[in-house]
Design a protein around this nucleic acid. Structure first.
Lengths: 279, 279
DNA sequence: GGCGGCGATACCGCACGGGTATCGGCCCAG
DNA sequence: CTGGGCCGATACCCGTGCGGTATCGCCGCC
């Protein structure tokens, strides 16, 4: 199955074999065997190009999920085995620089809990929490709707907040009591920065490139960009930055999420604490 | 991994090997290899009994999910390959005897859709829809909250209804305009029937045993039991049965659900139709 | 028409998975 | 206290399957 995913992604047996660290002929045979076992034609080989069939597209989707599941099984088991005594640590993942206030309260409250498991904090880039939960690198996550997707996860809502525009302190708009989304999205002098996608490339368009929160704030302070962010980030603003409410921007809901089948005591306890501190 | 799940369930290498159709020594070695690969002790063998370690319990949970995922991948691919031309059929699963009115409307409306995929209907027992979706036997399901669990599934709400008590037509309570839950749960002459659990055994207690909807209605008509069910089942009541509203029973919400990663065009179309016919 | 790229096929060797026989520890019965 | 039986681990053997190299066949292109 790993083999099939590699071929389906590369659409090229030679490159896929190289990526897998094996030679091309065994790979051809492995795919052939898989096709016979499923009696399905997965790939259309026309001696010049390889294309996915309908069944192949189905298997690609399903196989990715399946591979993630076995990776998750291995990783979680390894982590559980490392735990010296009693309860194993839980890995909590969240976007770097988001919900820091809530996070601090949660960690404090959880540490004060009597029989609480240890919590390893893991910070990641935007939108990576889902995969992290699915492949076992993390056990529980803080997500922010509507930016993150909760598909396939169990969730509990924690809190909802409005958004603010982050502007250079001296900018004319920074003096306004509030702004509309349209006021800040189309500014020629302060474009919205571009973020790298999951594949590491930047979308085309104007705007400086940033790859984390710190760079973003730096760009704004330098007067090269502006941004719209949840209110709670106000506590992290440094000098030279101003925040102005944007009432018509979508509200942001912070949720705590976990893979549905991994309802361990440790995760359940952390979720309960999160609900308590946020209500 | 299949091997480990078998041993973890049997807690006995010999029986597990028998179940797997292999001899016991290869099984011992396979588990040993797995433990070395994960460097984790999964099972505590005390020469008289086998018990799961903490890490073993984690792996049991995760491995079940992973095995379901690969089964799902194989099944869905096989089904996609069988499809003669164009779009493959979608398998819709629901509890036998539930939501039949909505179901009929949905199937009719979907069939009338221009480019709609074929829909195979699959009826199952209570609470089996989740596993059916997870292991690929079905693609989309109608569930009934709060009885079914939607953990790990994407859902859309379709409709909500109250519940009614189903009683023998001649029973004194059948003449009342409405009842409270307490009125029907503790009746010595009309106990609630018992359902087999997922393992096929019946819980202890009074009440006749039933294994499907038809048997249940038969038991009620015979004056041996009563039941509380969603209102929509009124249309299916045969002679000798009476339905009385139970306003204080929890309302039942019918939802359409699908595995989050299998957002194929066919499933999406069916979901859209379902939302349309139910609103 | 020849060359080059790419997937399939042929053939080979090794290593891993599975089988049988046997050992070693433990509980229990006599 | 000792022997037998249960059960998992170990030893050893064999066959299949997977991976490697060499080569073929097909097609597009210069």
């Amino acid at each position: 199955m790993r083999y099939f995913v590699a071929v389906a992604e590369e659409l090229h047996f030679g490159r896929a074999a190289q990526r897998l660290g094996i030679a091309q002929p065994p790979l051809s045979r492995a795919i052939g065997r898989l096709e016979r076992r499923l009696n399905a034609v997965l790939l259309e080989r026309s001696s010049r190009a390889v294309t996915l069939t309908e069944a192949g597209a189905v298997l690609l989707r399903e196989a990715r999920a399946a591979l993630e599941a076995v990776e998750a099984a291995e990783r979680r088991t390894r982590r559980a085995a490392l735990a010296p005594a009693g309860e194993a640590g839980v890995v909590l993942v969240t976007k770097a620089g988001a919900s820091s206030e809530l996070l601090a309260k949660l960690l404090d409250a959880h540490a004060a809990e009597p029989g609480a498991a240890g919590v390893d904090l893991l910070l990641c880039g935007m939108g990576e929490q889902g995969p992290m939960l699915r492949d076992g690198r993390a056990d529980v996550a803080l997500l922010h709707l509507p930016f993150d997707t909760t598909a396939g996860l169990d969730t509990e809502e924690l809190c909802t907040e409005g958004q603010v525009a982050i502007l250079p302190a001296g900018h004319p708009l920074a003096a306004r009591p509030h702004l509309r989304t349209a006021d800040v999205t189309g500014l020629p002098d302060l474009p919205m920065p571009r973020w790298p996608g999951p594949d590491g490339t930047y979308p085309a368009g104007p705007g400086p490139r940033a790859r984390d929160h710190a760079q973003l704030l730096q760009l704004i302070a330098l007067g090269r960009a502006c941004w719209i962010a949840p209110e709670s980030c106000r506590t992290q603003l440094r000098e030279g930055l101003a925040a102005v409410p944007v009432p018509d921007a979508p509200t942001v809901t912070t949720v705590i999420a976990w893979p549905p089948h991994s309802r361990s005591r440790a995760v359940a306890g952390l979720v309960r604490t999160a609900i308590r501190v946020s209500s």
